[in-house]
Design a protein around this nucleic acid. Structure first.
Lengths: 341, 341
DNA sequence: TTGTACGCGTTATCAC
DNA sequence: GTGATAACGCGTACAA
């Protein structure tokens, strides 16, 4: 900042070309003679030119910015998503402006305005505070991930298929009673399909089942206490039966597994456990946990392809007005480890 | 993008003011009559004005961007750092441009150039591929976190104090033999102090000790295998002594704990374990693990204060030339849980 | 209190 | 193949 930046004007003066030619050197180098390219290249070095992308954006309107709003990065699921998006840079060359928002709708709206003021070309939303109708009103390509998305495009894990795989496995392994443990999922959330699939599959195969949606709490310990209660209830209610437990995520599954292990000092054959997400804890647990793995890399690639396509459309002279939302589902994969079979 | 943006010119025309007055409305509202403020405010609404921060930056040079380079977000330590930085937005109003870089120096340099081209005012570096001398050469405020930082300012956990606390605890608890397990840390890395402190404390109190720096591997399973070997070695070498194990991080500590638990079905009184980081796994383990908690929130606040101060200096008409690097250390806290006492 | 004129660094249009 | 010139949207002397 101390000395002024070196600009095209400086290069132009130094090389006796015009600013236009310098610009062309960067954007249409073929239209210069190789000789002159070399001249300019030299000048750039000796003058120590550093490009200013902001000026470029102001001039041509293409910011190459994508806004992304996550609830937090504390949960591995979100941080893994963000990692994948960030590393998509090498393929797509879009930069990400990231906001973490957990404090309600006003905050999130404010963040979106801020993002828009930086001329973002698209938006990726993993948070769930703003209804999709509101998001759609911003008139900019938006991709929702694993959230309500009636009015905007979305990419989700095929939650139904995931829960179906988990449930089928437990049935194949001849569990006497199947139990699904979850929070009280909102019916509009994609994850609600896990409950639907569990129930439908159990009924289809005429297997006794239980669904416990009583999990809640803001801290690890609060949740652990709830899981403990559920565990005790199950122990009391189904003492001698083989219990197949399908939990909403690997964190819950790990808690449940720990409770079992602490009581028995081992993993008894009267239990099978399946988690969801394939987060690190599933591998790090006292016994590696069988889980349904979300293909986050595929989800991210799909989201980026979709978003890029919509953003390209918006750059045309006569952009179509953001047609019907597109909804994609990504198949999860069953990862069999040591808490089943 | 379809219709052109509403600009100050449009507002000016509509309100019969000049562009300057509109600008002042935003930047020095006091210099307008309340009456005229109201007029402009109305116009903004009816015309649907949306601000363009990029244009503002181009005009006044203050981008309010901070670049941040992390190795990855897969490790909880980094994602927690990023979360804290992102949430510092509400206090400092700097936006973060994030790159994840694990593929060597060229990539990282390229990212820095990109960041520079967006006129970032400061840079935060958590990766360790580029030497601090190189980073210093960019002539922009840089804060290093938990990495080599000879030529740039830095904020680190007081690793020495952390390891001292861990070691002292194990000594107080009357362990017969103390063992530190770690990777072969580079001597220039701040984390090397953990090894130094462990050794110094053991010697000061004349307690027998062992240091095993053989941990390595790129995947969970590779590392686990190394830890297993170490575990077996320790079991054979110190069968009846009380062993105090201090591990480089909670992931290793959890592995070690699992191996113990799998062998004994419980946590025998011949072991004590202390980890480092206070990452989630320390709470989620089969037995909550005693650990040294890094105060990431304090680290981040310290880093931001330092960076902001340096950035403010750079904005002055005659900025000082980025004086001597400042190095801050943040005290960690001992978190006693169930693997000690 | 308000306005004029120009600068920020780059791209786009049209000419030659 | 190259060059004027006018945008892009906003800030800021300087003047009134």
């Amino acid at each position: 900042m101390s000395k002024k930046q070196v600009t095209f004007a400086d290069i132009a003066e130094y090389t006796n070309f015009s600013k236009t030619t310098i610009s062309r050197y960067f954007n249409h180098p073929d239209s210069l003679t190789v000789e002159n390219q070399e001249k300019i290249s030299q000048a750039l070095d000796t003058l120590g030119y550093k490009k200013n992308k902001l000026a470029k954006v102001l001039a041509n309107g293409k910011s190459e910015f994508i806004g992304i709003i996550v609830p937090n990065l504390y949960l591995h699921y979100y941080s893994e998503m963000l990692t994948q998006f960030l590393s998509s840079y090498s393929d797509y060359h879009y930069k990400f402006l990231v906001f973490a928002s957990e404090h309600g709708a006003e905050e999130e709206q404010q963040y979106i305005e801020e993002l828009l003021s930086y001329q973002i070309e698209g938006l990726i939303v993993l948070s769930h505070t703003l209804p999709s109708e509101k998001l759609a009103s911003y008139q900019i390509p938006v991709i929702a991930i694993e959230r309500e998305a009636k009015y905007i495009s979305s990419v989700n894990t095929d939650n139904y298929m995931g829960a179906l795989q988990a449930t089928s496995l437990l049935i194949r392994d001849k569990c006497d009673i199947l139990i699904h443990i979850n929070v009280n999922v909102n019916k509009s959330a994609p994850a609600y399909d896990r409950i639907r699939a569990f129930q439908a599959t159990c009924e289809e195969y005429h297997v006794p089942y239980d669904i416990d949606l009583s999990v809640e709490g803001d801290s690890y310990h609060e949740i652990l206490n709830v899981i403990r209660e559920i565990f005790n209830k199950i122990e009391a209610k189904y003492p001698n039966q083989k219990k197949g437990i399908f939990l909403a995520n690997d964190t819950y599954a790990n808690m449940f597994l720990n409770l079992i292990f602490q009581k028995y000092g081992t993993f008894p054959s009267t239990y099978e456990i399946v988690g969801f997400d394939n987060s690190p804890i599933a591998s790090e647990a006292i016994l590696p946990i069988t889980t349904i793995g979300q293909q986050i890399d595929v989800i991210v690639k799909t989201a980026m392809d979709l978003l890029v396509q919509q953003m390209e459309e918006q750059k045309k002279r006569v952009p179509k007005p953001l047609g019907e939302p597109v909804h994609k589902q990504i198949a999860p994969v069953l990862i069999r480890r040591n808490t089943t079979k």
